[in-house]
Write a protein that binds this DNA or RNA. Structure first.
Lengths: 253, 253
DNA sequence: CGAAAAATTGCATTTTATTGCAATGTTGAT
DNA sequence: ATCAACATTGCAATAAAATGCAATTTTTCG
């Protein structure tokens, strides 16, 4: 049986019964409990179930909140690797602004266990942050983008200006010698304000985004402190980063 | 049996009887009193019960609804009926403040199709509102309650004061001749500000909440305009509402 | 096609969680 | 104040979860 097929069967059973034991699933599907456990971990990562001692329950409310079609293809290893490295850069007991990108979102679960003050304009990020009980979360005000669930507008920008934090985590749409770019002004103005209010600016961008430009300029290269990416960029760009005092963190060794 | 299942059963029993002894729970569920004690500690941490010598009592009706019975009697509950009636009171093309109660949450899907400006301090409400494409949503800033995902604090209250809307939808914990009450100051201060900034205040309360009082006073009766509930209250209370110019809307006919 | 890389799976081992019991400390009704 | 009932704490037995490992299967390339 294909794994996907098995996961679907498991999901179906949990949906029908609201709860399930690992024992019963293992027996019903004729695989070991270990396999069931690993399956349930996968389902939990998609926020469709909640694991509990001895089994799992349906995560009805979570399911409502998170949009799975987008989130289903997790394990996007580039993003996960970047997230992993980034999480290590964030010291315990610090304050962090999280911008509303999906790369930044991937960082949040990796920060689990740290004592943080998290501030964000993304509703989904806020909910993920709230799962770490050691994190105190604040949310900026603003108009809500109904699709992507981030807050924006003058209110958001004004509020950001009242904060000052240790780190700003910035998801990047395009980065080049001309600076960092994003495709909408809406988000751009917010990101720009976030850059100005962070002590250490950490930009996250996979290699496909390096050397490209976009519509709205968020900031110039010298305004960021660290760039986390998956592959070593061209020498020319590496030198450019050095000239602008940007530390480069590469996930591939 | 899974622990979660046992906790649900315990909760159900407490819900029905308002109070319970450790002895009876231990016997009924065939586990030791020690286990019951530990379970009750868990439930107490979730703020749904209060432990007392020899047993436990229900913490508050509102807290109860937040967590457990919500899942159990989904469907045609009292809450749904109240939500249905409430939605009809909200005119198209109006602005609405939604407070963070689950009763108010139930109203949101029923507003689908209307052109609204929605403003809320609840992340889950905001996400539900965003599903209606004709609704523009704003979110108040503030500190996030990690359990129940609502925003609160001075920032929230300050921001509310900058708005003025056609309707405020208010979930109520207790209502009586003394006014409207909620069990935490955290939420109370926010609700109080919301009442002051709405043109028409619609309070939502099932019959069990009428004639009771709580810890923190949100406002007095004359500050609300409409009360939506499921059963006709005592004549005395109906008269009281009339004296305070509160319209009464009943779901049961 | 076919070899190398990656993923999957079950098993053994270590770590953590749950539970009941006993010893000791507290509470509260009379 | 007293004493029985209750609560708390530490402990040991058991069950489940996490981790590491090796065998097997599947996927990915040239």
């Amino acid at each position: 049986m294909l794994i996907e097929e098995r996961l679907e069967k498991e999901m179906k059973i949990i949906e029908e019964n609201k709860t399930v034991t690992i024992e019963s699933l293992a027996e019903f599907l004729s695989v070991s409990k270990d396999t069931i456990r690993r399956d349930l971990i996968k389902l939990e990562k998609k926020n469709v179930i909640r694991r509990i001692h001895g089994g799992a329950v349906l995560a009805s409310k979570e399911a409502l909140i998170f949009n799975y079609s987008e989130r289903a293809n997790q394990g996007n290893s580039i993003k996960e690797k970047i997230a992993e490295k980034t999480a290590k850069l964030v010291k315990d007991h610090s304050s962090v602004i999280f911008d509303s990108s999906t790369t930044v979102e991937a960082v949040i679960p990796k920060l689990n266990g740290k004592n943080l003050k998290g501030i964000t304009n993304s509703l989904t990020h806020a909910i993920l942050l709230a799962k770490n009980e050691r994190t105190s979360v604040s949310v900026f005000p603003g108009k809500l983008n109904n699709e992507q669930l981030f807050l924006y507008g003058a209110e958001t920008v004004d509020k950001i200006r009242q904060y000052h934090v240790d780190y700003t985590l910035l998801g990047v749409f395009a980065i080049s010698e001309n600076g960092l770019f994003i495709h909408t002004e809406e988000e751009g103005l917010v990101k720009r304000a976030m850059v100005q209010r962070g002590n250490k600016i950490i930009a996250l961008a996979d290699h496909t985004k390096i050397g490209t430009t976009g519509y709205f300029k968020v900031c110039s290269l010298d305004e960021i402190d660290i760039l986390v990416t998956d592959k070593m960029p061209e020498l020319k760009f590496v030198e450019l980063l050095a000239q602008n005092n940007v530390d480069l963190v590469i996930t591939d060794e």
